[in-house]
């Protein structure tokens, strides 16, 4: 057996694909199944622990056993494609959204998105202040073509249930008597002083930030209600922290 063949068979076994372990010609203190089981357990436990660290509210909502099943399904379906784990959790919320096992928990994918955004926002160290001086130099003609930027790692979510209350309740262990039919819009963003901040948004605020996130031009934004107040407000909160000219990356 060549090295590539051995690694292929070994890898397939780790991923629960059907292989003939006898081909590996393993010896040791226990059976080949038991010894390979040690490696397989170690692989899943390592990645599951990483995911449970990134998604504490999801764990709190579904319990460790169900979370382990979700994690295992994710590891098999969305393989780790680099050694660095830092961004491996990025696909977990979209995975949950499409996962039949989590179908009955309609809010779970959004809770995972909040967990992930919180984790990512914490990792941001240097935050850029809004470039007021540069904005003052923009000519009136250029002004209509500029678009604003949200602070990196900012998350906007809108849900037909009390998303932030569920997330906070799961994290604190106090999930009593929520009115599940109240919808909610949320922004979560990195902050210099607190690490991460989040709050509810009105539908007008949400629509405005959605447009900013989509890089709508100043000309389009100015058609939205309360445009000037909203722009000032979100710049003052450091949620909007930059602007670009049309075509500029």
């Amino acid at each position: 057996m060549t090295l590539a063949e051995l690694q292929s068979t070994f890898s397939q076994h780790l991923l629960y694909q059907s292989v003939d372990l006898a081909e590996l010609e393993i010896t040791g203190p226990f059976s080949a199944e038991q010894l390979m089981g040690l490696y397989r357990n170690n692989f899943y436990i390592g990645l599951s622990e990483y995911l449970s660290d990134c998604f504490p509210a999801v764990v709190a909502l579904v319990g460790e056993e169900f979370f382990a099943q979700l994690a295992k399904a994710y590891i098999i379906e969305c393989p780790l494609s680099q050694a660095n784990l830092e961004l491996y959790g990025q696909g977990f919320a979209p995975f949950i959204k499409d996962c039949p096992q989590a179908e009955s928990l309609e809010y779970l994918a959004d809770i995972a998105a909040l967990d992930w955004a919180f984790d990512r926002a914490k990792s941001v160290v240097s935050l850029q202040d809004f470039p007021f001086t540069q904005l003052a130099q923009v000519t009136a003609q250029q002004q209509q073509q500029i678009s604003f930027r949200l602070q990196p790692e900012t998350l906007l979510l809108c849900a037909p249930y009390p998303l932030l209350k569920i997330w906070l309740g799961a994290k604190s262990g106090e999930l009593d008597a929520l009115e599940m039919k109240s919808d909610e819009r949320v922004v979560m963003y990195p902050n210099k002083h607190s690490g991460v901040l989040f709050c509810n948004l009105s539908s007008t605020e949400y629509q405005f930030l959605q447009q900013v996130q989509a890089h709508a031009s100043l000309q389009s934004l100015s058609a939205l209600p309360d445009f000037q107040d909203l722009l000032k407000h979100f710049i003052s909160l450091h949620i909007i922290n930059d602007f670009k000219f049309a075509g500029e990356a």
Binding site: Q7, S8, F10, S11, L14, L15, Y39, N42, F43, G46, L47, Y50, P79, L80, S81, Q82, A83, L85
Partner: peptide, 9 residues
């Protein structure tokens, strides 16, 4: 790693 998949072990 094998065939582009990583195993974190």
């Amino acid at each position: 790693s094998f065939s582009g998949r990583y195993f974190n072990d």
